[in-house]
Amino acid sequence: MSEAPRRAEPGLYDFVPPPKRPRITWPNGARLAFWVAPNIEFYELDPPPNAARNMWTRPNPDAMNYGWREFGNRVGVWRMIDVMAALGIRGSVSLNVAICDHHPEIVRRCLDLGWELFSHGVYNTRFVANMSEEQERAMIRDVVDTIRRASGQQVEGWLSPALYNNDRTMDLLAEHGIRYTCDLFHDDQPTPVRTKTGRMCSIPYSLEMNDILVYARQMQTPREYGRMIKAQFDQLYEEGAESGTVMCVPLHPYMVGQAHRLEPFAEALDYVARHDKVWLATGAEIARWYLDRHFDAAVAAARAPGG
């Protein structure tokens, strides 16, 4: 079987540097839209193989690594939720939707607090890489249906498990009513995403602010993570005076919910929440605002001559 041709460019967005952008404004004159995206995940103990990626680095069952992830659901998520609730910060949950089946009490707690659920696929051990288009469609329908059944919410956002995508993925998502993707890291502001149908945008998520990458890949301490969040916020808050910025803090309860990490994290969130020109939003609220008020102007700017 020959492989599908590869493209040299993703072709998902245009090059529009800051001087060419229309100004972005947020509600109530806020400079910065701040959102927190906890990844609430279910990793299977004995998942099937995928040639592109297998979660576990040891043969199944990888008790140590599975147990570490599961700490998030048994312990970490409850601590993380309490910290956020105390500060009045809602989460936008990047949800492996199988959590709705395995651990509905976690979903209920999030919904009681008015949190958004968006898609992080079905399990964190199943990836779209190597799926046929039909399989990918079936997986997307499963996600949309499961979130609707569990919450009544129409899913608006998407973060692929392990950030795997196929060339057609964004088109399929737009076709299924997805309004924002978190898989693109090209900007600090929302941008339009080019899809065959629908209106879809990219909402800045972050690799830099992502707890798992900070702790386990950059190998930083919990206190350094707190300092990084504040520094990221200070800079984007300042720049947001010119044109509204977005800051996301992506979380994994099995990391941030460890007892030795909670306090510096809570202190950093508190620092952000104390500023008055911050819009404490969900991913969907940012996406809707942008799609309704700024999306068309951004598309027009991209098409303007002299680019």
Partner: peptide, 20 residues
């Protein structure tokens, strides 16, 4: 490397853990 149909089947998808 195409994935078999079973890649989208989840025999342990239900309340509680995915093992005993």
């Amino acid at each position: 490397m195409a994935l078999p149909e079973s890649y989208l089947q989840y025999p342990r998808r239900g309340p509680g853990m995915d093992h005993d």
